[in-house]
Design a protein around this nucleic acid. Structure first.
Lengths: 172, 172
DNA sequence: CGCCTGTCCTTGAAACTTGAACAAATAGGT
DNA sequence: ACCTATTTGTTCAAGTTTCAAGGACAGGCG
């Protein structure tokens, strides 16, 4: 239903997508859902968890003491705190993450990557990287990779106006 | 954990992502999850259904008699038949879709867009198009839009080797 | 101090998704 | 006609996500 007229937009008519824009949008939708499904299955099969959970472990692995406050981890992963809460509960049951109280703020919780969690990453990361390469990077020219990065950067910033990047948006 | 070494890959070491590739991949992940969430909320709020369900209605609206076989609709939307089965059950309860038996194949079912379904599309499509524009097209140059289309086309085809496009792959 | 107000995180129920298992029907031989 | 393999769509159970609500604490202010 982005599909309707191709003519110009008279007054209050919504500005429909052009034929070319529609092609782009559909390609985007198809590619992103196929890729997400593909990686979800790959990781579910090889690591026993969905892609987003894997991303949480990665986030923790890269954090200072393999630990992050729940809110930070949620922001990092672009998910709600509620969703994270459930996810960490599940990862805890699997033994890959452990919770710890924050000493300085009694409301706070740290999610901590366990040794088992690190181990599962070590074991499955290579296969995952390969999957990402095969599905994405191996198919694109260097120019396309660069372009993709720029585009996605723009879109992400548009939807999440903050998140200090290379430049400081609040100074402009 | 795509993150590990930045040095060259010795023998059997997996081929980790370069720093630049990592940036691209993260931007991709962030942008796609933010956009998906954004549109899901937009449509849940304005149309009372998630994005993928909306896509199903659009698919039906564009089909010959506002109807499609379950399997075709599933392929169109890039989802499993199981998921579609649940989704159509829900859309049926909402009154936007109706099922019809296929006369020529007694196993078959058509999903048919009802008048109420068409009406909900008419009512909500403008807002949805606007959301897509604001989040994506309005932020990209024409060159970037073109590039994005090409890239996504490549990725989609890589993950779904068939789906007749402009050329006929089985003839090559 | 005592009282707001906001932040941090969890909970519970409902909605949605997944994968395997299944019944019914068709298609393809033999 | 017959037997097998495949296709079609559904169902079940388990897992995940969402949204609204709520409990606990922190920070600021009179």
């Amino acid at each position: 239903m982005e599909t309707m007229n191709t003519a110009s937009a008279p007054a209050d008519e919504p500005q429909w997508l052009t034929a070319e824009e529609q092609r782009v949008w559909r390609a985007y939708l198809h590619a992103t859902t196929l890729l997400e499904d593909h990686l979800d299955r790959q990781l579910q099969r090889d690591a026993g968890m969905p892609h987003i959970y894997y991303g949480l472990l990665v986030g923790l692995a890269e954090a200072p003491h393999r630990r992050l406050r729940m809110t930070e981890l949620a922001m990092q992963a672009k998910i709600t705190r509620s969703r994270l809460s459930h996810a960490v509960a599940r990862l805890e049951k699997s033994g890959w993450v452990r919770r710890e109280d924050c000493p300085s703020d009694k409301r706070g919780q740290f999610a901590v990557l366990t040794d088992a969690g690190l181990e599962v990453l070590r074991r499955t990361a290579p296969g995952h990287v390969t999957a990402v390469r095969q599905a994405l990077f191996d198919r694109l020219t260097p120019e396309q990779q660069k372009s993709l990065g720029e585009i996605m950067q723009i879109v992400a910033e548009g939807l999440q106006p903050n998140e200090a990047g290379a430049d400081l948006p609040w100074l402009r």
